[in-house]
Design a binder for these strands. Structure first.
Length: 422
RNA sequence: GCCCCCAUCGACUAGCGGUCCAGGUCGCGGCCCUUUCAAGGCCGUAGCACGGGUUCGAAUCCCGUUGGGGGCACCA
């Protein structure tokens, strides 16, 4: 039987990275098995924010590459079906009216148990199960009623969800049995925590997919990182392409214990992916990111600057800080120019009529100038770097100067010489 | 309060009774390389929560303790 799984977010805001991790496990499982991954919105009303959230959810999933099968469905559309089933349950004596609402009669004795794919057997004493409200007094079905019904109607074979749903599972199991349907396999994956062991939230840093996108993370790196949160193929492999993840994923290897989100490791992984991309591809991503984040920078210059920083940046968002000097004016801190006056003058002289004005020749000329002053490369190049790029940290100096061009370089050298301490 | 879940280096994890005085990755520290910052190379740091069992033998199985998390809605 083909696997059918689903992601069933409630449209209450931006897509939380923890939910995405759960969605990813569903997706990986479906793709690994050649099954289906469905997207279902668990909404119960139709406000404007909902429509917006639904768009954002889809947008985030697409960006990450989590494609879903079949049409997007809405819980709202099946309210009538739910009500019909509720009436049948009442007619069969399995549910009853209570102050206008309808409650489902839970068993009073024994246990409700299931074999959880990630945790093994879980048991619930039935005496602890309350008769859940399945239809509110206003006629709308509740989550604990609509959700399992939809799982049945959609032919969901495996319900992979957050472990906060464990207490709901025995209720849903009884409901499904009551309507005479087969129960799906359940798997409860642990939540994702912040560094303090508390559920990941805004105060820990970025939490929504949109946050990570704006931070300049690559979707493939984020996916790789997320997959490793609670799952590992063998304990040795860490960098895996999407195809490899799909090929190697298995629910049985998902850990039952909660994981902490390590931003530093994500950062490192992103750098790994960024460096592995071709220059052209990085330039392309950079351009997209810049466009999405309000930068209207010359595409050709961005492309030419890319090789200078591909190894130095770890996220796309770091690009502007590194290369801003190529796209706008700089304001060097005079204190950083300290003691460099003679080298600035020497650099000016070395570059004023240098031909060709290319990195290699520039390096030769500047090294000769430094030699002439008896300066170590380190001492000599730093003031030049500050004058030209406005910062003590920059891409390679000679390549930077080539890209900047002679005119701008010389004027910055002179401005710095004039502004710096004598 | 009641119910449920979880427990290997700081973090993510491998380990499914002997091959583990516990392996990999991030981080951290040191060294090398070096025009800054990175990247890269090498070396190092650090862990089976505790207590009882079971067994010839336990990180691995069982029980308890402690610690963390979650749930107890006419929310999802």
């Amino acid at each position: 039987m083909a696997v059918v799984v689903r992601m069933a977010p409630s449209p209450t805001g931006l897509l939380h990275i923890g939910n995405v991790r759960t969605a990813l496990f569903n997706w990986l499982y479906a793709r690994h098995d050649g099954g289906e991954f469905r997207l279902r919105i668990e909404n119960t009303d139709t406000s404007r924010e909902v429509a917006e959230a639904v768009d954002q959810i889809q947008d985030s999933l697409r960006w990450l590459g989590l494609d879903w099968d079949g049409p997007l469905t809405f819980q709202l559309d099946r309210m009538d079906d739910c009500r019909r089933v509720a009436d049948e349950l009442v007619a069969a004596g399995k549910a009853y009216e209570d102050e206008g609402a309808i409650r489902f009669r839970m068993p009073d004795e024994g246990v409700t148990a299931w074999e959880d794919v990630v945790r093994g057997r879980i048991e619930y004493p039935n005496e602890k199960l309350e008769d859940v409200v399945i239809v509110r007094s206003d006629g709308r079905p509740t989550y604990n009623f609509a959700s399992p019904l939809e799982d049945v109607w959609d032919g969901i074979t495996h319900v992979i969800r957050g472990d906060d749903h464990i207490p709901n599972t025995p209720k849903q199991l009884n409901l499904i049995r009551a309507i005479g349907a087969d129960v799906p396999v359940y798997g409860h994956v642990p939540q994702v925590n912040g560094a303090d062991g508390k559920p990941l939230s805004k105060r820990h840093g970025s939490v929504s997919v949109q946050d990570f996108r704006a931070d300049g993370y690559l979707p493939e790196a984020l996916m790789n990182f997320l997959a490793l949160l609670g799952w590992a193929p063998d304990g040795e492999t860490t960098v895996m392409s999407r195809e490899e993840l799909v090929a190697r994923f298995s629910l049985e290897r998902v850990s039952p214990s909660p994981a902490q989100f390590d931003y530093q490791k994500l950062e490192w992984l992103n750098g790994v992916y960024l460096r592995a991309l071709s220059e052209e591809e990085v330039a392309h991503r950079l351009l997209l990111w810049l466009g999405e984040n309000g930068y209207d920078w010359d595409a050709e210059l961005v492309a030419r600057a890319t090789p200078l920083v591909q190894e130095k940046i770890t996220r796309l968002a770091e690009f502007p800080a590194f290369t801003g000097f190529l796209f706008g004016d700089v304001e060097p801190d005079p204190a950083d120019l300290d003691g460099g006056a003679s080298m600035l003058a020497a650099a000016d002289e070395a570059l004023v009529s240098l031909e060709p004005f290319e990195a290699e020749a520039i390096e030769t000329a500047l090294r000769a100038a430094a030699d002439g002053l008896g300066l170590k490369p380190r001492q000599a190049f730093q003031p030049v770097r500050v004058a030209v790029t406005g910062s003590k940290v920059s891409p390679g100096l000679f390549e930077s100067i080539e890209l900047l061009g002679r005119e701008t370089t010389l004027s910055r050298l002179r401005a710095a010489a004039a502004a710096g301490p004598a």
